[in-house]
Design a protein around this nucleic acid. Structure first.
Length: 229
DNA sequence: CTACCGATCCCCT
DNA sequence: GGGGATCGGTAGA
């Protein structure tokens, strides 16, 4: 056993296994955006598991389409989608290949690069037409006062704080040299205490919406919504 | 605190 | 043409 970061092969094994185990196991893993300016690093504290075509809440429920193609790829790849016209969300594809299982990253706790995260959220806010109508500096003031633990709370905010764009769709999150990547933490660290509950925003999926496929770190202030249940 | 509502656009059933 | 794996502002209790 080596010290320091768990070998990425461990992460690959995790993502290749059952999707619920993978979702639970991703809690505590680090998400990194390292574009050579100021590295952004955060700890994953809330995720949701999505099954393949059988799961009526999953984007895979209609089979492969132009949007969800990367879901049908190999574990460890990113599945990035846009929703509501303005938000971009990050998923981690799980195995086996072709099963179209994925894990949505719903919240992370910033560990490094907080100024870069604020800058990214500001840039994203300014890209909307609403910003043009607002008083000058309104977005800047709002974002400057967001508590650190709220900067990347909620899937849309994770996307904004980490500058996730559709171009990231399909990238290899297990590549140690990738600009957007996952980094497992030392295996000696125990998995954080977690809780689970129904997935958010999938009421259209009937009974599938009730399955407790959302997982979060029990005591994290970065968890979105009403802190669990 | 809860509840509603508009934003904004890609992809689809 | 409709709707969405969301967010933040506003109104009211």
């Amino acid at each position: 056993m080596r010290t320091g970061s768990r070998p990425s092969s461990d992460l690959a094994r995790l993502l290749g296994g059952p999707v619920l185990d993978a979702a639970r196991g991703l809690l505590g893993v680090h998400l990194v955006r390292d574009d050579g300016v100021e590295a952004r690093i955060a700890r994953i504290v809330e995720v949701e598991a999505y099954g393949g075509p059988d799961d009526l809440a999953s984007h895979a429920r209609f089979g492969p389409t132009a949007r969800n193609g990367s879901m049908f790829g190999s574990p460890g790849k990113a599945y990035v989608y846009g929703v509501y016209g303005m938000h971009t969300c990050l998923n981690i594809v799980c195995g086996p290949v072709g099963t179209a299982r994925a894990i949505l990253v719903r919240a992370v706790e910033p560990l490094a690069g907080v100024p870069a995260m604020r800058e990214a959220r500001h840039a994203k806010a300014l890209a909307t037409r609403r910003a043009e109508r607002d008083a000058p500096g309104r977005a800047a003031t709002r974002i400057a006062t967001i508590p650190v633990m709220r900067l990347a709370s909620g899937p849309g905010n994770v996307g904004a704080a980490f500058s996730i764009v559709r171009a990231d769709d399909g990238c290899d999150l297990l590549d140690p040299a990738g600009m957007l990547r996952l980094e497992a933490q030392p295996g000696a660290d125990p998995l954080p205490a977690s809780a689970s509950g129904p997935r958010i925003g999938v009421g259209f999926a009937g009974a599938w919406a009730e399955r407790p496929w959302r997982f979060w770190v029990a005591d994290s202030a970065a968890v979105s919504g009403r802190r669990g249940r």
